[in-house]
Lab assay of single mutants.
Amino acid sequence: ELSWTAEAEKMLGKVPFFVRKKVRKNTDNYAREIGEPVVTADVFRKAKEHLG
């Protein structure tokens, strides 16, 4: 699991709890794919757009 900024964690907190774990995993995987060592708010937004 990658490191997350406080802002990205806050955004994740707005995701319904029953899918939060999956969203975190998918976002981590997306960040790795694009070469990001940390999940930022920008990476979170891009993952959301990319993953739907």
Rank of each mutant, 00 (worst) to 15 (best):
Leu51Gln: 10
Lys48Gln: 15
Met11Ser: 04
Glu9Gln: 09
Lys10Tyr: 13
Phe44Val: 04
Glu49Leu: 13
Pro16Ala: 06
Leu12Glu: 00
Lys46Met: 10
Asp42Tyr: 07
Leu51Asn: 10
Arg20Gly: 02
Lys10Ala: 14
Val43Asp: 01
Leu2Tyr: 06
Arg20Glu: 02
Glu36Val: 11
Asn29Arg: 12
Lys21Phe: 10
Lys10Trp: 12
Ala47Gly: 04
Ile34Val: 10
Arg20Asn: 02
Ala31Gly: 03
Met11Lys: 04
Phe44Ser: 01
Gly13Leu: 15
Trp4Leu: 01
Val38Asp: 03
Ala41Arg: 06
Lys21Asn: 14
Lys10Val: 11
Val19Asn: 13
Lys14Ser: 08
Phe17Tyr: 11
Phe17Gly: 08
Val38His: 06
Met11His: 04
Arg32Leu: 08
Met11Trp: 05
Ala8Glu: 00
Phe18Ile: 10
Glu9Tyr: 09
Ala47Ser: 06
Glu33Trp: 13
Leu12Phe: 04
Glu36Gly: 03
Leu12Ala: 02
Gly13Asp: 13
Gly35Cys: 06
Val19Gly: 08
Val15Lys: 03
Lys10Asp: 11
Arg24Phe: 03
Glu49Val: 10
Tyr30Asn: 01
Phe44Trp: 04
Val19Cys: 15
Arg45Leu: 13
Val23Cys: 07
Asn29Trp: 11
Arg45Cys: 07
Met11Tyr: 05
Val23Trp: 11
Pro16Glu: 04
Tyr30Leu: 04
Pro37Asp: 11
Pro37His: 11
Lys22Pro: 04
Gly52Phe: 10
Lys10Cys: 11
Leu51Glu: 07
Phe17Glu: 09
Glu7Asn: 05
Glu1Asp: 11
Pro37Ile: 12
Lys46Val: 05
Phe18Leu: 10
Ala41Gln: 06
Gly35Thr: 03
Thr40Asn: 07
Phe44Asn: 00
Ala6Arg: 10
Ala6His: 09
Arg32His: 06
Thr27Gly: 02
Lys46Ser: 08
Lys22Ile: 14
Val43Leu: 08
Ala31Trp: 01
Tyr30Cys: 03
Thr5Met: 03
Val19Gln: 14
Thr27Lys: 02
Asp42Ile: 07
Asn29Pro: 01
Glu9Thr: 09
Val39Asp: 00
Lys21Tyr: 11
Leu2Met: 11
Val15Tyr: 14
Asn29Glu: 12
Ser3Cys: 11
Ala41Gly: 09
Val38Phe: 07
Arg32Ala: 06
Pro16Phe: 05
Thr40Ile: 01
Ser3Pro: 15
Glu49Met: 12
Ala8Thr: 02
Arg24Asp: 00
Pro16Tyr: 06
Glu1Ala: 13
Gly35Lys: 06
Lys46Thr: 06
Glu49Cys: 09
Arg45Lys: 10
Ala41Trp: 04
Pro16Lys: 05
Arg45Glu: 08
Ile34Cys: 08
Ala31Thr: 03
Ala41Val: 10
Val39Trp: 00
Leu51Trp: 15
Leu12Lys: 01
Val23Ile: 09
Phe18Tyr: 13
Ala47Gln: 03
Arg45Thr: 08
Phe17Trp: 15
Arg20Met: 04
Lys22Ser: 11
Pro37Met: 13
Asp28Met: 09
Lys21Ser: 14
Arg45Val: 10
Arg32Trp: 06
Leu51Phe: 15
Leu51Met: 14
Val43Pro: 01
Ala31Ser: 05
Gly13Gln: 15
Phe44His: 02
Lys22Thr: 12
Trp4Thr: 01
Val19His: 14
Met11Asp: 04
Ala47Pro: 01
Arg32Asn: 06
His50Pro: 04
Gly35Val: 03
Glu7His: 05
Asn26Ile: 15
Phe44Thr: 01
Val19Tyr: 15
Trp4Asn: 00
Glu33Ser: 15
Gly52His: 13
Ala47Met: 06
Val15His: 07
Glu1Gln: 13
Leu2His: 04
Lys46Asp: 07
Arg24Pro: 00
Phe17Asn: 07
Ala8Gln: 00
Arg24Met: 05
Glu9Ala: 08
Pro16Leu: 05
Gly13Ile: 10
Thr27His: 02
Ala6Pro: 12
Thr27Tyr: 08
Arg24Cys: 03
Glu33Pro: 01
Val19Phe: 13
Arg45Pro: 01
Leu12Cys: 02
Ser3Lys: 15
Val23Gln: 04
Leu2Ala: 04
Val43Trp: 02
Ala6Val: 12
Val38Thr: 07
Lys22Phe: 14
Thr5Trp: 02
Glu49Thr: 11
Leu2Pro: 08
Gly13Ser: 15
Gly13Asn: 15
Leu12Trp: 03
Lys25Pro: 02
Trp4Asp: 00
Lys14Asp: 12
Phe44Ala: 02
Ala47His: 06
His50Asn: 09
Gly52Cys: 15
Phe44Cys: 02
Pro16Trp: 08
Asn26Trp: 15
Lys14Trp: 07
Glu49Arg: 14
His50Asp: 06
Leu12Val: 03
Ile34Leu: 10
Leu51Arg: 14
Glu9Asn: 06
Arg24His: 04
Val15Gln: 05
Glu7Phe: 04
Glu33Lys: 11
Pro16Ser: 06
Leu51Ile: 10
His50Val: 11
Phe17Asp: 07
Ala8Asp: 00
Lys25His: 11
Thr27Ala: 08
Gly13Phe: 14
Phe44Gln: 01
Val19Glu: 13
Trp4His: 01
Asp28Gln: 07
Asp42Asn: 07
Tyr30Ser: 01
Ser3Tyr: 12
Pro16Met: 05
Val19Trp: 15
Lys21Cys: 13
Gly13Lys: 15
Arg45Ser: 07
Glu9Phe: 09
Trp4Gln: 00
Ser3His: 13
Asp28Leu: 05
Val43Ala: 03
Lys25Asp: 12
Phe44Arg: 01
Val38Ala: 06
Ala8Arg: 00
Tyr30Arg: 02
Lys25Gly: 07
Lys22His: 14
Ala8Pro: 01
Val43Glu: 01
Tyr30His: 04
Ala41Ile: 08
Leu2Gly: 04
Lys22Ala: 13
Thr40Leu: 01
Ala6Gly: 07
Glu9Pro: 00
Val38Glu: 07
Lys14Ala: 09
Ala41Met: 07
Phe17Ser: 09
Asn29Lys: 12
Val38Leu: 09
Leu2Lys: 05
Arg45Trp: 08
Gly35Arg: 06
Lys10Ile: 12
Glu36Asp: 04
Leu12Met: 03
Ile34Asp: 03
Ile34Arg: 09
Gly52Met: 14
His50Ser: 10
Gly35Pro: 02
Gly52Leu: 14
Val38Ser: 05
Ala31Pro: 00
Lys48Gly: 09
Met11Gly: 03
Asn29Ser: 11
Val39Tyr: 00
Lys46Ile: 05
Gly13His: 12
Tyr30Gln: 01
Lys10Asn: 09
Asp28Trp: 03
Leu12Pro: 00
Arg32Pro: 00
Asp42Leu: 07
Glu36Pro: 01
Asp42Cys: 07
Phe17His: 09
Lys25Glu: 14
Glu9Leu: 15
Ile34His: 15
Ile34Ser: 07
Trp4Pro: 00
Asn29Cys: 09
Tyr30Glu: 01
Glu9Cys: 10
Phe17Ile: 11
Pro37Lys: 12
Leu12Asp: 00
Lys46Ala: 12
Tyr30Thr: 02
Trp4Ser: 01
Phe44Pro: 01
Glu36Tyr: 09
Arg24Val: 03
Pro37Val: 12
Lys21Gly: 13
Pro16Val: 04
Glu1Leu: 11
Val43Thr: 05
Glu36Arg: 05
Glu9Ile: 15
Val39Ile: 09
Glu1Thr: 12
Phe18Lys: 12
Lys10Arg: 14
Leu51Pro: 06
Val23Ser: 03
Asp42Arg: 07
Met11Ala: 07
Pro16Cys: 09
Gly13Met: 15
Leu2Asn: 04
Phe17Pro: 09
